[in-house]
Design a protein around this nucleic acid. Sequence first.
RNA 1: GAAGAUGGUCGGAGAGGUGCUGCGCCUCGCGCAGAGGAAAGUCCGGGCUCUCCAAAGACACGGUGCCGGAUAACGUCCGGCGGGGGUGACCUUAGGGAAAGUGCAACAGAAAGCAAACCGCCUGGAGACAGGUAAGGGUGAAAGGGUGCGGUAAGAGCGCACCGCGCCUUUGGUAACAAAGGUGGCACGGCAAACCCCACCGGGAGCAAGACCAAAUAGGGAUGGCACAUGACCUGUCUUUGGGUCGUCAUCCGGGUCGGUCGCAUGAGGCGUCAGGUAACUGCCGCCCCAGAUGAAUACCUCUCCCCUGGCUCUCCAGGGACAGAACCCGGCUUACAGACCAUCUUCUUUA
RNA 2: GCGGGUGUAGCUCAGUGGUAGAGCAGUAGCUUCCCAAGCUUCAGACGAGGGUUCGAUUCCCUUCACCCGCU
Length: 116
Amino acid sequence: MHNNPPLERLKKRSEFLAVAKTGDRWVTPAFVIQVCRRALEGSARYGITASRKIGGAVERNRAKRRLRALIRQILPLHACPGTDYVLIAREEILRRTFACMAQELEEGLLRLQRRS
RNA sequence: GAAGAUGGUCGGAGAGGUGCUGCGCCUCGCGCAGAGGAAAGUCCGGGCUCUCCAAAGACACGGUGCCGGAUAACGUCCGGCGGGGGUGACCUUAGGGAAAGUGCAACAGAAAGCAAACCGCCUGGAGACAGGUAAGGGUGAAAGGGUGCGGUAAGAGCGCACCGCGCCUUUGGUAACAAAGGUGGCACGGCAAACCCCACCGGGAGCAAGACCAAAUAGGGAUGGCACAUGACCUGUCUUUGGGUCGUCAUCCGGGUCGGUCGCAUGAGGCGUCAGGUAACUGCCGCCCCAGAUGAAUACCUCUCCCCUGGCUCUCCAGGGACAGAACCCGGCUUACAGACCAUCUUCUUUA
RNA sequence: GCGGGUGUAGCUCAGUGGUAGAGCAGUAGCUUCCCAAGCUUCAGACGAGGGUUCGAUUCCCUUCACCCGCU
């Protein structure tokens, strides 16, 4: 297991675009993971996207909250230092069970790590 | 018991674990608080801030429009009046002005606004036609009062009764208006969510308003030192000659970007008793402090109960929990909404 | 958060209160050996709800969707 790097957040649109353009991705029914190695050292960063495709303000906020809960549980165990993670919500995120999504996130992170 | 009408309340409840945001401290770990009735749409009205402008008024433009009241204000609310609907409880209503002016009314119809006369009716006449008339027919959304009796050549408010309408007076009412009496003898048709007239209201923008702090880089200004050699530009009429600017270094100043702080939650605040008022609402007193994020917190998981749907419907199992998420703050309006509850009232039926 | 605008046929647009129109596209027919072009014919629409009016695409209110601007 890694030593846990400190977690920061992505905030600017340009940072999201950089991850989407240069990064690797993994798709599950509930969300999409995008990963981009920024540097060898330093803190890991994460960002969350929930577009209007999900629904209104209530549904989008709920999707973001569920993604944040997942990240708090899973990401510190598998994050690499100097790496940016972006999670994009899909419509299934409002119906899928939490345990199921946690397993999918873990599997996706491991596969992306192995790929790079 | 059934069918309704109106007003109001709620908008799943509880426990445990792990987290997020703010506040408070015995200051690094605890405690407390943490979405709504619409937080929504942004359709109105305010507070607050900047800006324009002597004040005020006029014009333009926009809005409102029965009467009285409530309110900080409103296009909101309350009470009443008039019109329309319903057996009723009750609902609904942009409801000022058409003898200030302009305009519109397709098609049909003789005629759509100065009234006139197509088929008719009556009189005269052999007839053509002339005169009288508007009862009847037909068109239209709308045709110059309606019904009845009298009257007449036929008819006609021509006369009368009732109704409608206009005007006048009286009474009631703060008023809108209503009632009664008299009078006129039917004129003054409709549309102002057509232009318009009248009365009243409104300067504009909006917390991403606005204020403050302020890094790196670039550039600006001031002062002083150095260089004042060549050159360029500006200026004084040409030349001579003179003045200023363009360089570099140091210090200081102001503007300002990223970023940060304030604005920012004690307020036309909420709850309760009492009093005034039909009510909207207001007043006295007491108690309470009740979200404050900024790529934007208010969550995730588990269990019990409640409700709904489906399944061998006793147990039990599975799925689900309306509309919807604060962003400066209030008062309204409008729109969305599973379901539950309370109060008052109406009509019908049954029983006593 | 705030301000502004637009919804008419499958597409692009006209239409200031009484008939909903034009071009392209579509259907059917004629023409041609066949296709294209041409000619003739037909069908198809006022974003939704309410109000004013005799009558609404048009006037008024509410609502929905889309677009643009400030930041």
